[in-house]
Each structure stands twice: as structure tokens, then as C-alpha cells.
């Protein structure tokens, strides 16, 4: 333990005194202030005359103002936080010759990587909590509503999911920093994978789905074909942590959202009743809808870290 806590303290001090962190945090704080202000203004207008709006506070996080909502912003920008915090974790120490020095101190080898990962996760948590607090504070001023207990629980859950999502990218960039000796290469590899998984997978998913299960091929029952097409598309896009996260967090933040499916087949009467009675889900039910996504996301994060751990433990340490 002595090793982990020493490395952890050192890394925390490094994170908080680095320009990298200051720039990142300034950027995030700025964006969250702007988006929450926009969302607040939009909400104020759209809720004018609504008799009894529910969960107004949560809408601050998923209302698309002029640009994007906070949830979308974290889904898009979160990976970059993880990558920036982790891409040079091990290879910088290796290049500067400090890694071997640390490893010749009486600590277990895993103390180094555990301490660094934990420090990264703590930094991420601190960032996210402060963003949520900034938005909440602004929301209180702008809208004049106080969050209820359930809204706070949902926000906490949202923070937990987001921490895992960003930690996945932290773990991944740490893995690359172990694999690649060059800092530039590991940064590039992380960013490349981020772009691939976040943008190309969703694009590629629809292309592949059209190839595997064409929706408007002649001689097929069109409803069935459309369902099949969308099933394939969603299946493929689940390989991207971004879509896992977007689905999980959107459902957790929005009590009105009852399914993660993009396509819901309903009869005309069902449609009318669904339109009439918009009852929010209780938090437990929302979690039930997305728990597979949350579990896969957590598993991905842990697997990613476990691989880094193994590679680091087995790697030959040379100066």
C-alpha cells in the first residue's frame, strides 16, 4: 500500500499543477457554463405556460440549446479528457529514466500503474463533479427550481457512468503508453482509436446494416426488413463505447425515455395512449432499461485496465 499511496500523491500533485489540467479544466468549465446557460434560456421559453413541468432540473443536462447538451458534450469530449490524462503515463517515465529508478525502490511493480490509474480516475471524478455543480448552480439561478431527491440520484448515477466512460479512455491511453515507447505514437494511437470508435463505427454500422439486411430490397416484407436492418445497425454500433455511453446516460438523465431502441413499433391506439399519458419512469426502472449497457461499459473499463496491468507486469524493464 505504501507504494500506491506515494505514487498516487505524486500523480495527483502532478495533475493539479500541470498546465495540461488547467487548460482542460478551463475549456470544460467554459463549455459547461455556455451550454447550461443556453439550455436554461431555451427551457425558460419552452416551459412557458406548461402547467406542471416535471424534472426540469434534469433538462438542464439534456436540453440541446444552441449547440449541444451537456450529455452530448461529455459523450463527445470525455474521451479526450481520458486520453490527455493518460497518453504519456508510462512512456514519459521510461524516456526520462525515472521508471527504472522508481521500480528499484521497495514497492511492488503494480503500485506504479495502480497509483497512476487511481490518480487519473480521481482527477476525472473531480472534473465531472465540478461540471455538474457549475451547471446546477447556474440552473438554480436561471430557472429557480430546486432539484428533488430523485433528480439528485439520477445525477449521481450519471456521474458514475461518466467516470467509467472516461476511465475507459484513460485505461486505453495508459495501455498505449505502455505499448509504445514514443509519446507521440501513443497519443496518436489513442486519438485514432477515439475517432474510429466514436464516428466511424456509427457511420459504418448503417453501411454494414444495409449490406447485411437491406431495408428496401424487392420481394421482402418491408416492416420485417426495416426491423432487421435496425437491429443489425444497433448491434454493430454497440461496439462503440460512445454509443453505449450515450444510450445509458441519456436514459438515466431523462425519466421520460423508456427504451434505448431507435425504432418502436406501436399500434395506433398505443400511440395515442403513449402520447396522452407521459408518465416518467422511476429511477429503478430507468436503470433496468440500461443496465446491460452500464455493465458492458464498466466491464470494458476494467478489461482495458486489466490488460494494461498484465502487459506492464510482464514487460521487460530496460533503461
Amino acid at each position: 500500500m505504501q507504494g500506491i499511496s506515494a505514487v498516487y500523491r505524486k500523480e495527483m500533485a502532478d495533475h493539479f499543477s500541470s498546465f495540461r489540467f488547467v487548460i482542460l479544466f478551463a475549456l470544460i468549465a467554459m463549455v459547461s457554463v455556455i451550454t447550461s446557460y443556453m439550455a436554461g434560456i431555451t427551457l425558460k421559453e419552452s416551459l412557458e405556460g406548461v402547467a406542471k413541468p416535471q424534472f426540469v432540473f434534469l433538462m438542464l443536462f439534456n436540453t440541446t440549446g444552441a449547440m449541444f447538451s451537456m450529455v452530448q458534450f461529455v459523450a463527445f469530449f470525455g474521451p479526450l479528457i481520458g486520453i490527455v490524462l493518460g497518453f504519456d503515463t508510462i512512456n514519459r517515465e521510461r524516456a526520462e529514466g525515472t521508471l527504472i529508478k522508481i521500480l528499484t525502490q521497495p514497492i511492488f511493480r503494480d503500485a506504479v500503474i495502480n497509483g497512476k490509474f487511481l490518480a487519473g480516475v480521481t482527477t476525472i471524478t473531480i472534473m465531472l463533479v465540478s461540471i455538474v455543480l457549475i451547471i446546477s448552480g447556474l440552473g438554480l439561478i436561471l430557472l429557480g427550481v430546486v432539484p428533488g431527491a430523485e433528480e439528485i440520484w439520477r445525477l449521481l448515477l450519471y456521474i458514475v457512468i461518466s467516470v467509467f466512460y472516461i476511465s475507459f479512455w484513460l485505461g486505453l491511453s495508459i495501455l498505449f503508453s505502455i505499448f509504445f515507447r514514443s509519446i507521440a505514437t501513443s497519443a496518436l494511437a489513442s486519438v485514432a482509436l477515439w475517432i474510429f470508435l466514436s464516428f466511424f463505427v456509427s457511420l459504418g454500422a448503417s453501411v454494414l446494416a444495409d449490406m447485411v439486411a437491406p431495408a428496401n430490397a424487392p420481394g421482402v416484407d418491408s416492416t420485417e426488413a426495416i426491423v432487421k436492418n435496425i437491429r443489425v445497425k444497433e448491434g454493430i454500433s454497440l461496439s462503440s463505447p460512445m454509443s453505449l455511453y450515450t444510450k445509458a446516460s441519456a436514459t438515466v438523465i431523462d425519466p421520460m425515455r423508456k427504451t434505448t431502441e431507435a425504432l418502436v413499433l406501436m399500434g395506433p391506439m398505443e400511440k395515442i395512449s403513449a402520447g396522452r399519458f407521459q408518465n416518467p419512469l422511476p429511477i429503478g426502472q430507468s436503470v433496468l432499461v440500461v443496465y446491460p449497457y452500464i455493465i458492458v461499459l464498466i466491464a470494458l473499463t476494467l478489461v482495458c485496465f486489466a490488460i494494461s496491468y498484465l502487459v506492464f507486469m510482464l514487460q521487460e524493464i530496460r533503461t
Binding site: E96, G97, L99, T104
Partner: peptide, 15 residues
């Protein structure tokens, strides 16, 4: 490692 002090060739420091 508790009783051995090792000074590597080109020892590195945190600048």
C-alpha cells in the same frame, strides 16, 4: 530493493 541502492546509468529525474 530495501537494502540495495541502485544508481542507474543516466539516472532520470522529474525536472
Amino acid at each position: 530493493k530495501k537494502i540495495v541502492g541502485y544508481l542507474p546509468e543516466n539516472v532520470g529525474f522529474y525536472g
